[in-house]
Design a protein around this nucleic acid. Structure first.
Lengths: 384, 384
DNA sequence: CTTTGTTCGTACGCTTTACTAACAAACATG
DNA sequence: CATGTTTGTTAGTAAAGCGTACGAACAAAG
């Protein structure tokens, strides 16, 4: 039979169920993305290079490239300088200046942030509006106004608008639940699309941050991003695919109880939630209350250990390769990450998990903004 | 552009990176599996029914069905009895008697088990060989002999051989590490393929069990199976896809430390590993030592609570919908599952996770055998 | 300066795939 | 019996990618 090779080399990983029909045109879209992706990640190359990289023939690559050039996503750079035998190659690259992306970060406690970004995820313009305690429709109006202003700032056509929102966001971009903003069932994607007449993608802030690490932070294909801010959330990329969970609540680990020895009381009513140990306001308060450097150091180490306790079962269950922490810099500079890693190792099987890497994010405060750009790139171009 | 709809309805879930080229013939394989899958899960139907179910046209379905009939995977059952207007439909079904599957379960502590199964995953013949402490090449020889015997028992052509092995199994079917069997880097799949000249698929026992629940146990597309036996392992199916982890060690939660209050010493050197609370031998010993029913009940409740503690972060991070326990019946009859669920709920956010279902597996001792069949069905026919 | 070999990009024809349109067969219903 | 409905098949068509072949452009060697 033709579905599988005769040796049965298919393993668990391919145990996926086809749910929808797959047409040749879908295959073309896939290959188109493949070409674009190669160009995006590997940089300028020739058609022949792309053919070698993708496994497609030169003919097919030429055809796809012609389409991409016609659509304005790819440009010819001219001949390659490098003197080699044979006809000189014509270098191609993504038309990095032909489009820009709008990124919006609604995850800050007291303000909405947004930016115009290049296709490479570099911030070109930046805007921030204070939230002033706005919730519900007021907050939605502020987000809409910010987005419109950013669209006006773009110098070239906007490829799309990416938004990282707190709370539970369903695949249609509706914010099902974001208590801090007083949102429940708010069709944020629809509202922004109507206001701007542009493609909009909305996703949870931590998930978006994970995508940023995957696209721009050099993270592997199995990474968990833990985002410490006013609350604690996480985003997961498994096998290069962002996880969304059965109810689109994947990564909501802030109110998981850590340890079996009680802990501080949480707003949710439980004791010892991860947020009570790790949320930035709580940590800052504890740091302020600490008597000296040693005490401050212990506060951070304790937080790190708690995070390690919470992550150990996840690392074990998922066999994660990489964990990235995103938090205000002063929280990551101290002993927190080391304590997390140490705890993680002491609580999992060294044989399997001593290769786990844990590091702070290099993307800083722009992680959600850049992740929003990655979201648009993924949704519109299939690039990630 | 054509890669995505103009409204940007693509969300996080589609943020996947194309890595390999996709040819029209791959699309055909996909659609072929789609037809086969519909037939497999929904039962006998006509070509026109299949066209409606899959979204393909009647013409295309006819073409695919003709190919499947020629290959012996589908048969015509005759005309539908149900009197309806129009030309009577010709019912089709999977050729359920045309092939059988060999399933092998190497996860028992003291024996290797195997079976000849129907395509529906029903056990037709069963064989078991005592392990007698065999390890290394001896164990491999026993597994090979068992498999060969089973192939001889099959009355019809064998679709393939599925194997659930303890330890770390890579995608090529090599057992990278199975301490109990003394295996390290053993090419089990290659050895069995060479011995039988049939397609072989090998995977971790708990992962195979998870697949069994997904295919035959009615589990949803986001399920975690926890397998309690001589050790404790887990298998995860996320979004209908089996998870394998960055080093093919997904689900290895047996040696994750549970709680922050110490615990029994483990063979791995740590204290309080999940296995020390939950492994069947440990639990049986504790039950034997218990003074009365109340004490025995508390032993099981304690084990359940520990499992809940370990699972809470995983449920939170993955937003799991369903957890299935596979264990000797006498361990699941008592208060263990209820204690796990209760602990899980008290340690996660009710708002998100009160819908989590936890239940014992209905597949009993054959779970790995039937999962092996599912593995073959998935690998060979794209059915799962 | 010429020859040789290499590489690049493209033109042409072919195969595969799934679609639309049309139709005959077979049945229920009025 | 006429009519409408459903089924499955037979054309013919459009899209996608491949293999082959070819001209163009260059480096290296004689």
């Amino acid at each position: 039979m033709s579905t599988s090779d005769a040796t049965g080399a298919t393993a668990l990983g391919r145990a996926l169920r086809p749910r929808t029909k797959l047409l040749p045109e879908h295959a073309r879209g896939h290959n188109r993305s493949l070409v674009l992706q190669t160009l995006f990640r590997e940089g300028a190359r020739s058609r022949a290079d792309l053919a070698r990289d993708t496994g497609l023939t030169r003919v097919t690559v030429s055809d796809l490239v012609a389409e991409l050039i016609a659509d304005g996503y790819v440009v010819e750079l001219g001949q390659r300088e490098d003197p080699r035998p044979g006809k000189p190659a014509t270098l191609l690259d993504i038309a990095r200046d032909a489009h820009q992306i709008i990124g919006v970060d609604l995850s800050q406690h007291d303000s909405f942030r947004g930016a115009v970004l290049s296709l490479d995820g570099e911030v070109v313009h930046r805007r921030e509006v204070p939230l002033d305690g706005a919730t519900g429709d007021d907050a939605l109006a502020k987000a809409t106004a910010l987005t419109r202003e950013l669209v006006g700032l773009a110098a070239v056509p906007v490829l799309g608008i990416g938004v990282g929102s707190p709370g539970i966001v369903d695949p249609a971009g509706r914010v099902q639940s974001a208590p801090n903003l007083g949102w429940a069932g708010v069709d944020l994607q629809g509202a922004l699309a109507a206001a701007t007449d542009l493609p909009v993608v909305v996703a949870n802030d931590a998930n978006v941050a994970a995508l940023a690490e995957h696209s721009f932070g050099g993270a592997s294909s199995d990474v968990m991003l833990v985002k410490i801010g006013h609350g604690v959330g996480a985003g997961l990329v498994i096998g290069g695919i962002a996880l969304h969970g059965s109810r689109w609540a994947a990564g909501e680990i802030g109110h998981v109880v850590v340890g079996t020895d009680g802990g501080p009381e949480c707003v949710c009513g439980k004791r010892g939630c991860l947020e009570t140990w790790l949320a930035a306001p709580r940590l800052d308060a504890a740091l302020d209350a600490a008597a000296d450097d040693a005490a401050r150091s212990e506060v951070l180490a304790q937080a790190g250990r708690r995070l390690g306790i919470a992550l150990a079962p996840v690392v074990g269950a998922l066999d994660l390769a990489e964990i990235v922490l995103s938090a205000p810099a002063h929280l990551l500079d101290g002993p927190l990450p080391a304590a997390t890693l140490e705890t993680l190792r002491s609580r999992t099987m060294a044989e399997f998990h001593d290769h786990v890497a844990l590091r702070g994010s290099g993307l800083g405060e722009d992680i959600v903004l850049r992740g929003s750009a990655a979201l648009v790139l993924a949704g519109r171009l299939g690039v990630s």
